[in-house]
Amino acid sequence: MDSLTDVTALFPQDFAGALKNLSAATQNAIEELRIRRGLPILVKTSTGEKVLSVNRPVTREDIDHIVLSATGGSYHSAAETMKHGYITVKGGSRIGLCGEGAMREGQIEALRNISSLCIRVPKPAIGCADELMPCLCAKGFQNTLIISPPGMGKTTLLRELIRRLSKDGFRIAVADERGEIASMHHGVPQFDLGPHVDIITNVTKCQAAIMLIRTMAPDILAMDEITAVADLPAILEASGCGVGLLTTVHGSDADSLKQKKLFQDLFSYDIFQKAVCIQKQNGNRVYTVTDL
């Protein structure tokens, strides 16, 4: 509920009121809020989508209000992540942005006339990794990939695994490029990640990983969303130093990843031993552990 409270505070009064008036069950089940200019706000829960009952569509001013609130009234602090299409807000929610890109020399300079927002409301799922722990730590921690399509709870599972491993005494270094794993606010993680965690946030995975490995002597390096060749050096550096790896990737299963050049390269190093695939069955998430 805390993340939703923080999210609600971003909205203009009438929308915030409508969110607060939702039943407790709906509030607890909210996964995403879809805000599009000229349209009503859509609330996505685990069981489907519903329209937020406010008697007017979203205006440009509403979107500006939400974005300004989300940046803490400081465009300069969020400018870099906004260029990449997102803002991370207090409580760990991520706001995805769409609008007109202002390009300069092939690079995104800014995103203006923002037309739609997707607010993902994270929820800690305490205990969701309990059954996985014996499989992943049977012979000490084994390097693990968490695989699933977007929106299935990769980051949630990653966070819970970090918490469990940290509680078990492993020193975990978190390269939290997008600020979604720990959701640091004023230097304090907004999620419980256990007692042995060191976090670098808002720095590219590669840079953060190298800094963490060299300075914090971690047992395990945790990262979210391996998506680019630029992420490989961090993995190789960690592996070369004997540091364990726990990361997430987009995909349906390990076989689907092997179709992609990036993962063919990654798998050729034989770094990862385990894959956890997340699937939904009857609205519930099911975790399957496979050997790589």
Partner: peptide
């Protein structure tokens, strides 16, 4: 503060 740390305005 803005140049060195990109500190948010509120802070």
């Amino acid at each position: 503060e803005i140049q060195t740390n990109l500190t948010p305005m509120g802070e």
